[in-house]
Nucleic acid binder design. Structure first.
Length: 244
DNA sequence: AAGTCGTTCAACCGCGTGACG
DNA sequence: ACGTCACGCGGTTGAACGACT
């Protein structure tokens, strides 16, 4: 049994919003607030479902939404947060004032994912080359120390830097709309939340093991990238000098 | 000029979850 | 305890547009 889509009810409009519909929605919310989304379209006189109205408002019409391209800092933040949180777009959006989960998701799929994949590939190629190099050295020198440590510190650094953007897909600074709909330029105001990483660590990582010993066991099975993030989570204050 | 392909992004859909009766 | 409702989230779609042939 499949639930019928909410917009399939007779007479409800789907597809792109018109300017008139936007005005009606904005005016109504400015006057009465959104209250009950389901009741809103009827009260406002819109032939849309409440879900569609909510989406339009939260993703496009809200006055505090930043319009324009993402800054390098924002992209960097998204990459770092995605590495930590995965596809939890709303959680990521909560760390980027003025940006919506939908927008972030789109940017990730269209720009950032590719960039991270490319960087990962480069990293793996680099690791492979280093491993080959080490094996060759092993053959010639038969050094026991080289076999116990397959990757050099330099490679580890390279891998951990894969989250650093090579270049923003746009160097244009962000803009934000005010209550009047006017557009103004903004700097990047990225405030940090002290509890944030603690929260991530406690919920995302520490839940995977119950004892400290288990934690170290988990740590020892990680690759370099995982180890980097593990360090970030466990020693966040020390390592997060590169800011979040 | 016309057709094809790839990219972008607004919008939709289905599901999970919390509030409430 | 259970059912219903409303909302929010993440995945997916499709129209619009530009680049390329």
């Amino acid at each position: 049994m499949v639930r019928a889509p909410c917009c399939e009810r007779m007479g409800l409009k789907k597809g792109p919003w018109t300017r008139e519909e936007d005005h009606i929605l904005i005016n109504y919310i400015n006057m009465y607030g959104h209250g009950n989304w389901r009741a809103l379209p009827k009260l406002a006189g819109l032939l849309r479902c409440g879900k569609s109205c909510r989406l339009r408002w939260t993703n496009y019409l809200r006055p505090d939404i930043k319009r324009g391209n993402f800054s390098t800092e924002e992209e960097e933040t998204i990459i770092q947060l995605h590495a930590a949180l995965g596809n939890r777009w709303s959680a990521i959006a909560a760390r980027l004032p003025g940006r919506t989960d939908n927008e972030i998701k789109n940017v990730w799929h269209t720009h950032l994912k590719k960039r991270v994949n490319e960087a990962e590939n480069k990293c793996h190629v680099s690791n492979f080359q280093q491993q080959t190099h080490n094996l060759k050295e092993e053959d010639t020198e038969s050094s026991p120390s080289s076999s116990s440590k397959p990757f050099s510190g330099r490679d580890q650094t390279n891998c951990s830097q894969l989250n650093s953007p090579q270049r923003s897909y746009s160097e244009i600074s962000s803009v934000i709309t005010n209550d009047n709909g006017d557009i103004k330029a903004t700097g990047n105001s990225q405030e940090t939340d002290e509890d944030f990483w603690t929260e991530i660590f406690s919920s995302e990582i520490s839940s995977q093991f119950t004892t400290v010993e288990e934690g170290y066991k988990y740590k020892s099975s990680m690759n370099d990238d995982m180890q980097f993030w593990f360090n970030v989570f466990t020693r966040g204050d020390e390592l997060l000098e590169y800011k979040l």
